[in-house]
Simulated assay, not measured.
Amino acid sequence: MRTTFDALPDAAFGIVHTMARDAARAVVASRGAQVLSWVCRDKERLFVSKRALSGAGQAIRGGVPVIFPQFADAGSGPRHGFARLLQWSPLPTLNRSDSAGLRFQLCASDDTRKTFPYEFRAELDVTVAGDDLCVSLRVENLDRLDFSFTTALHTYLRVADVTRTRLYGLEGMEFLDSTNGGRREPASGKPIQFDGEIDRIYPEARGELSLSDGADVVRIQSKGFTDTVVWNPGRTLASRMTDLGEDQFDQFVCVESGSVAAPQVIPPGDSWRGTQRLTIIPGR
């Protein structure tokens, strides 16, 4: 089976690691510790743009980018942080009788200290088992001072047609509308539909979500993260994005588990962990 990124050059990803269990398969790049592909029930479940850019300082458009230590422009570093731009080191694998896993580590360096002047260690665990993909980020404070950060797993979920896709579970939540300067909007009272650009932060949205594209359902669960981010650029914005284009905007929805509305604070010697679990529920 062709994966979502087969047409792209290897240089975009660095070293690529593959794992499989129970007829499911995931591919993770050492660059950014970024999940690029998750094949479950013979279908690719993640989206990577066919125009994804490669090279130093370029983020890979798609998969599951790790946003750390800042979300968007909420900091002095590069947009969405440096974690998705740097090479992570592989750690011993997490293979068990019921799952397969990969682990990666990113530590403070001269590059990271330019914009985040703290000693830290970040670990990313990725596991597949049955119909599940689980991604877990752990951040440890190795410094002598408290530090704070914002973070997210910027997950691009592949859909058959974004205009027929619905996201359930946020009907009763207020949100911050990033397309309108972060203005707080009241709860809509209905599932999210994608009929134009959507860029929303749902603070304190920690419940279970379901994304349906008329075929299968993706159940989205998180632990440790405080918020949910929902994004699709719509046709107009996508047409201005050189690494996307208007012909691909309708193939994905980003549903991100994150801590972005308010930062996480870690004292010296302590750590924090956030986990996102995706489960495929096949259509009937």
Rank of each mutant, 00 (worst) to 15 (best):
T115I: 03
T242H: 15
T165V: 09
T3R: 12
D216M: 03
F104W: 04
L46V: 05
I198N: 06
D10C: 13
L46S: 03
S210G: 10
C107T: 15
L36Y: 00
T115C: 05
W88T: 01
G101F: 04
G189M: 06
L137I: 03
G55L: 07
T112F: 00
A52S: 10
P117C: 03
Q70Y: 02
S37H: 00
V16G: 09
T115W: 00
F149A: 02
L94P: 02
L85S: 00
A261I: 09
G207L: 06
F194W: 03
A262K: 13
R277Q: 11
L142A: 08
V218K: 02
D199W: 01
A11Q: 15
I60S: 03
Q248H: 14
T226E: 14
W231Q: 08
T165C: 09
K223D: 15
P78T: 05
G258D: 05
N141R: 04
R144C: 12
A152N: 06
Q70E: 05
D132R: 14
L142H: 11
D132Q: 14
G63K: 02
L153G: 00
L85K: 00
S109V: 07
F68N: 01
L278F: 06
L8Q: 03
D270A: 15
R164H: 11
L86R: 04
F5I: 08
S76N: 13
I266K: 00
L53H: 12
R235S: 15
R96T: 13
E119W: 11
R79V: 13
F71V: 02
G196K: 06
T151A: 09
T179E: 09
P117M: 05
P78S: 04
V39M: 10
R200T: 06
L145Y: 13
Y168K: 07
D247Q: 14
A23F: 12
S222Y: 08
S37Q: 06
W38N: 00
T226G: 14
H17E: 12
L53Y: 10
S136Q: 11
L8V: 03
A122Q: 01
P186Q: 07
A29I: 03
D98F: 15
V48G: 07
L133K: 06
A122L: 09
S54Y: 11
